[in-house]
């Protein structure tokens, strides 16, 4: 387990700047997620930490030690790949034991360690099967076990849940979180799924076009986005055009913080805006109402019983000013 530091790390491919010079510190035992759309540089950054990609500038440090020129196989990293990358010709036992054999562990120790790991991932009975003979969720857990078998200094995960269906993905998120916490391994996790990032991470680094736009606790990223990109990428948000000190900007507000005025009128101190109901969608525990206010489309999220509105109805929206975020253009 280790602290990970990136110092002015960048990557340039001919004309394309995959990663702009970036500084990043990851604490010992921290779960950090690199979140962003495809092509934002998150995978490049992960592969630089792994050692598969050599940075154009800057250095990578584990516990202060410069590992920029250290080959990937000597960095003591564990990695879970998007498609798991289990060895199809080796049994589950041999897959998990792979790193142990490469590091010269004794047979008895390997046996004990693999059994322990199979218990940890709650799959004690599959040791002799081949990867093609187990389910996707099981493969995912085996890939995890292989990555942590020789306790790594850093665990890297590249969209490890992307290939699973929704139900399994949610279950695996909690499983991963539990295991990572229990083992206390420094983890860098790459995903484009903001819900996943929220559920798993100690901190999230939101990336766009080769740089980190914002880094912080999931709560802060969600409640206090500092840019329109982050506000829109992490969760749903409404943007109202405004003028701030003569500059064009926007007022950002989450759908659940907008309310539709009822008979009791608008609460003291709330701002308000007239709007017209376009459609409403019932999702079970919530209702999503689409409205139009002048040229802007807005979404309100409420509980089903609170408002009974009809499509085409003219209503008044209101919100507490503290819930608003003022953003630049």
């Amino acid at each position: 387990m280790a602290r990970v530091g990136l110092l002015g790390v960048s990557k340039q491919y001919r004309e394309h700047r995959a990663l702009l010079p970036t500084d990043l510190d990851i604490a010992d035992g921290e779960f950090l997620t690199l979140l962003g759309p495809s092509g934002c540089g998150k995978t490049t950054m992960l592969r630089i930490i792994a050692g598969f990609v050599e940075p154009s500038t800057g250095s990578v440090r584990f516990d202060g030690e410069d590992v920029t020129r250290v080959a990937p196989n000597r960095r003591a990293i564990g990695m879970v790949f998007q498609d798991y990358a289990l060895f199809p010709h080796l049994t589950i036992f041999e897959n998990i034991a792979f790193g142990l054999r490469e590091r010269g562990w004794a047979r008895v120790k390997i046996h004990a360690r693999v059994s322990e790991l199979l218990d940890l991932i709650k799959l004690p009975a599959i040791a002799r099967r081949l990867p093609a003979e187990i389910s996707g969720g099981q493969q995912q857990r085996v890939a995890f076990a292989r990555a942590i078998a020789h306790p790594p200094r850093v665990l890297l995960m590249d969209e490890p849940l992307g290939a699973l269906d929704l139900k399994l993905r949610e279950a695996m998120q909690f499983e991963l979180r539990r295991l990572q916490r229990a083992l206390g391994i420094t983890t860098v996790y790459v995903t484009h799924d903001q819900t996943e990032a929220m559920n798993l991470s100690d901190r999230i680094a939101v990336m766009e076009a080769g740089r980190i736009r914002q880094i912080g606790l999931p709560r802060d990223i969600y409640d206090r986005p500092t840019s329109r990109f982050v506000a829109e990428f992490v969760g749903q948000i409404n943007l109202l055009p405004t003028q701030t000190r003569g500059h064009a900007g926007s007022l950002a507000i989450r759908p659940q913080h907008l309310a539709i005025a009822n008979g009791a009128g608008i609460p003291e101190g709330h701002d308000s805006l007239p709007a017209r109901v376009l459609t409403q969608v019932f999702t079970g525990n919530l209702v999503h109402i689409q409205l139009q206010a002048q040229d802007t489309l807005l979404t309100v999220e409420t509980r089903p019983s609170e408002h009974d509105v009809a499509e085409g109805e003219a209503v008044t929206l209101h919100w507490h000013p503290d819930r608003c975020i003022v953003l630049g253009a």
Partner: peptide, 27 residues
């Protein structure tokens, strides 16, 4: 043979020669 498998072998400690021996050759 997916290149991913060679990366997986490398990151989990195999040298270039060992990757060839344990992954590329058998597959």
């Amino acid at each position: 043979i997916p290149q991913r498998l060679e990366e997986a072998a490398t990151i989990h400690g195999a040298t270039r020669l060992r990757v060839l021996w344990r992954v590329v050759l058998p597959l």
